[in-house]
C-alpha cells in the first residue's frame, strides 16, 4: 500500500468477532471484508449498487457493501454469508435457508448467492411468513443471470415454511 494512502483505525464486529484494524479511508466495506479480513464469500459484481452481490447485514439490516466505506462500519456489527451456517447448522453444514437453496436448486454459478442469502435472512427475520410478492420485492434488489429467480423464490418460501414448522 502506498505510504500516502490515508488510513484510519476502526473496530468492527464481523460475524461475532471484533476486529480492530487500520483501513484505507477510501476502501469500501465489501473490499475490506474480502481483502483485509479474507472473508471472500461476499462478492463484488458491479461496484455501483445495483447487482446486490455484495449485500451484507450492517447492524441487522441489509446494505450494499460497495456503497459503504469500511470506515463507516466503525463500531458496527456486520454479518456476512460466512455466518449463516454457524447459528443453526444442518446436515451439509448449511443453515435452513442455505439448505432450502440447495433443495430447490436456487443457485447455479453461485456468485450472486451470498448477497441474496443475506437479503433473505433479513426478510425472514422481519417477516417469518412472507408471501411470494414480498420475496420477489426483496429479490428485485439483486441481479442473477443464471437462475431466472424462480427457484430462489421457491427456496425462500420453503425456508419460511420450515421455520414456521419448527
Amino acid at each position: 500500500m502506498s505510504s500516502e494512502e490515508p488510513l484510519r483505525e476502526i473496530a468492527v464486529t464481523v460475524n461475532g468477532t471484533l476486529h480492530r484494524c487500520e483501513v484505507a479511508e477510501r476502501k469500501n466495506l465489501a473490499d475490506f471484508l474480502r481483502h483485509d479480513l479474507r472473508l471472500t464469500g461476499t462478492h463484488v459484481g458491479c461496484e455501483h449498487g445495483v447487482c446486490g452481490a455484495c449485500t451484507v447485514l450492517v447492524d441487522g439490516v441489509s446494505a450494499r457493501g460497495c456503497l459503504m466505506l469500511a470506515v463507516q462500519a466503525d463500531g458496527c456489527t456486520v454479518e456476512t454469508v460466512e455466518s449463516l451456517a454457524a447459528s443453526e447448522p444442518g446436515p451439509a453444514g448449511l443453515g435452513p435457508l442455505q439448505q432450502a437453496f440447495r433443495d430447490r436448486h436456487a443457485l447455479q454459478c453461485g456468485f450472486c448467492t451470498p448477497g441474496i442469502l443475506m437479503s433473505l435472512t433479513e426478510l425472514l427475520r422481519d417477516d417469518p411468513s412472507p408471501d411470494e410478492e414480498a420475496v420477489r420485492l426483496v429479490l428485485s434488489g439483486h441481479l442473477c443471470r443464471c437462475t431466472g429467480y424462480q427457484n430462489i423464490v421457491a427456496a425462500a418460501l420453503q425456508a419460511a415454511r420450515a421455520r414456521a414448522g419448527d
Binding site: 446486490g52 426478510l123 426483496v138
Partner: peptide
C-alpha cells in the same frame, strides 16, 4: 424508492 437494501441506508 430503490430497493429495500438501498432504503436501509
Amino acid at each position: 424508492v430503490g430497493h429495500r437494501q438501498t432504503r436501509n441506508r
